[in-house]
Design a binder for these strands. Structure first.
Lengths: 155, 155
DNA sequence: CACTAGAAGTTGACGCGTCAACTCTAGGAC
DNA sequence: GTCCTAGAGTTGACGCGTCAACTTCTAGTG
């Protein structure tokens, strides 16, 4: 028997609830980052990627891969973050071409701070709301979903 | 004993996985809406809200409440959707002031289509990946999270 | 009725993300 | 050496979302 390809009202309600929870969670975390550290979630991601990188330095393409962003998005963001003094395009190679992205001192400071604050907020908003059982379920489901979608195994 | 307010590496990994799954899910749904129906998720939300409204008509403030958006965001979006012919600002009252937002014929058609397509995609990507057990867990957790965050009950 | 406070809605500026077009460089082929 | 191409990175235009300032309507007070 063919599954219905539409949703029952109850399923819509579930979906709306789910989306709402996601939105609230994301909003709260963004607000925390903005209020406590003065940066956006996107800026945070860049700072963390650089912070964790060997030598605290990456290339644009590597950043793009790590963040799963388009290169041009990375480039735009780096321009803005360079203007704010968080990041610098470091020259390397014989021609002095500016390849490679590094943290400034200020950028490193902010990264450290933000990681601590953000970790606290994630614990407070996410982990504290999960029982071990819920956590296991969410984790399993996330992994399965990633495999399905990234593998293109969705019918 | 005080809980640690930072995250263990394993927790970070869990968090990253979780975020990645969310991102993929959202991206895939957006792509479906865009490819199949030529609209963004935001436009979809507006169309659905109007479609479900009594009389297929709402005011800006009501839309803002329903969507949990800022009024100005709604206003900007309506301007764009009005230009695309999906929506019209209907006059009412004695002074002919344009209050109230309605669907155009075209808007109604697109809304119908999009709801069907989107429902199919949600089933395929979300519901099909859930066992009844997972579903129950996710639902319970979502509701609890909403209560906590909206109630401001987070320490 | 005039006045005013405030709600409802709009606008403009700005930072952000995407897409397509562009520049620059490194590395062959000849 | 010269040319040519593929990849890396940047730029510009445009739609989007937020914030603050603004206009306009409405309702209450005297």
């Amino acid at each position: 028997m063919a599954e219905p390809r539409t949703l029952e009202p109850e399923e819509w309600e579930f979906w709306d609830t789910w989306m709402r929870a996601q939105r609230l969670l994301a909003r709260e975390l963004d607000r925390g980052l903005q209020d406590d550290c003065g940066i956006s979630k996107a800026e945070f991601s860049v700072l963390v990627s650089l912070w964790r990188a060997p030598g605290r330095e990456l290339r644009v393409g590597e950043l793009a891969d790590a963040l799963d962003w388009e290169k041009s998005r990375v480039s735009h963001m780096l321009t803005r973050m360079e203007n704010r003094g968080f990041v610098e395009r470091t020259s390397s190679g014989t021609t002095g071409r500016r390849t490679g992205i590094g943290l400034t001192t200020e950028g490193g400071r902010v990264a450290r701070d933000a990681i601590a604050h953000h970790a606290g907020n994630i614990r407070r908003l996410f982990f504290d709301s999960l029982t071990p059982d819920h956590a296991a379920t969410l984790r399993a489901w996330s992994e399965q979903l990633i495999t399905r979608v990234e593998g293109g195994e969705v019918p």
